[in-house]
């Protein structure tokens, strides 16, 4: 087992200092942490599965939610997430190359590869932030019914989604946003949606081309499209206009969907962020020649383990959030 760096001389069994698993103390502890963290993530993903199986017929379809690519307009399901996945795998590769260079005591190469790893991680975290921003902003808008279900709008002729701004009527404002300087000083409220329920209702009645789409998934794996008559009937259940997403409700469908999205990708993004920070610390240590003097690059190997673990988790998040 030459690949693991020897830091302690072999001693007799009772004297301490021997390594029954062939791994140093630090590496073993990193593995302990990784296993326990893997169980934490498994708990999150399993509870996501729980909620999804509970609402298996009404869960949002990921392809229809994540359709954006920065700087490009239009409908590109999943390409950007696939790109993010590739970036993370790529930074995993540069990390493992850094570890390999460390084994051969090539300081210059370790510096280069650590640097590339940090860049990859930064691109990933940035993409994640952009993805969140797009998710929170939303794009089409929807209405919520009395039962907390989401109704979305579709153009009858093309079958494309219709944004609220494309058909909502413009009525005189019914109420103004309550802010702290109006009314009682300690009272305020969140931002009001761009349109009121009445404006959406009137817009729907005036546009024969607009149909309502419910959360229920058909046998064909698509959302149920109501007829014009059913749509006009259904809109009377609307109580609230929903644009974008927050922890209470989102325009994509089931409320739990956004909660899990924020929680799981957020927790993973936090791991990537801390991974980048730890990588930067080790990167500077490599530049300062700390490990060159110590005679081995085991620290690089240890942060490498963590970094690969973050990549490993993303592989699962990618599957269960975006593909399945």
């Amino acid at each position: 087992m030459d690949t693991t760096v020897t830091t302690v001389e072999e001693e007799n069994v009772w004297g301490g200092g021997n390594r029954p698993l062939g791994a140093s103390y630090g590496k073993l502890m990193m593995w302990f942490f990784i296993v326990s963290d893997a169980l934490t993530f498994s708990g999150f993903l399993a509870s996501y599965g729980f909620s999804r199986f509970k609402f298996i017929e009404t869960w949002p379809i990921a392809d229809e939610v994540f359709t954006h690519v920065p700087f490009f307009h239009g409908n590109y399901p999943m390409y950007y997430v696939a790109f993010m996945t590739f970036i993370l795998i790529m930074s995993s590769v540069t990390m493992v190359l850094a570890v390999d260079a460390g084994h051969h005591m090539k300081q210059k190469k370790v510096i280069l590869y650590m640097f590339l790893t940090i860049i990859g991680g930064a691109i990933f975290v940035g993409s994640q932030a952009w993805e969140w921003a797009t998710f929170i902003k939303g794009d089409y808008g929807a209405v919520e019914t009395k039962g907390g279900r989401i109704l979305q709008f579709v153009k009858a002729d093309t079958g494309e989604r219709a944004a609220l701004s494309e058909f909502a009527a413009s009525l005189p404002d019914e109420r103004v946003n309550l802010s702290r300087e109006k009314g009682v000083w300690y009272m305020d409220e969140g931002t009001l949606p761009t349109y009121t329920v009445n404006e959406v209702k009137e817009g729907l009645k005036a546009n024969p081309n607009i149909l309502i789409r419910t959360e229920t998934i058909t046998d064909e794996g698509e959302k149920t499209l109501l007829t014009r008559e059913e749509s006009l009937q259904k809109i009377n259940d609307a109580t609230m206009v929903v644009e974008g997403a927050n922890l209470y409700r989102n325009e994509y469908g089931s409320r739990l969907f956004a909660d899990f999205f924020f929680f799981i990708t957020g927790f993973h993004g936090f791991h990537v962020f801390s991974g980048v920070v730890i990588n930067i610390i080790i990167f500077f240590n490599v530049i300062l020649g700390t490990y060159q003097r110590r005679g081995h690059y085991e620290m690089v190997e240890k942060v490498g383990l963590y970094w690969h673990f973050v990549d490993l988790v993303w592989v699962f998040v990618f599957t269960f959030f975006y593909l399945v």
Binding site: G22, S92, V96, E301, H308, L312, V315, F316, T319
Partner: peptide, 23 residues
């Protein structure tokens, strides 16, 4: 396919292939 990817990340990137069987 996810499990396949996970296997290769753990075995080759995280060097599990080179570790002792017990670990």
């Amino acid at each position: 396919l996810t499990l396949v990817k996970a296997y290769y990340i753990a075995w080759d990137f995280m060097h599990l292939r080179d570790e002792k069987k017990s670990l």
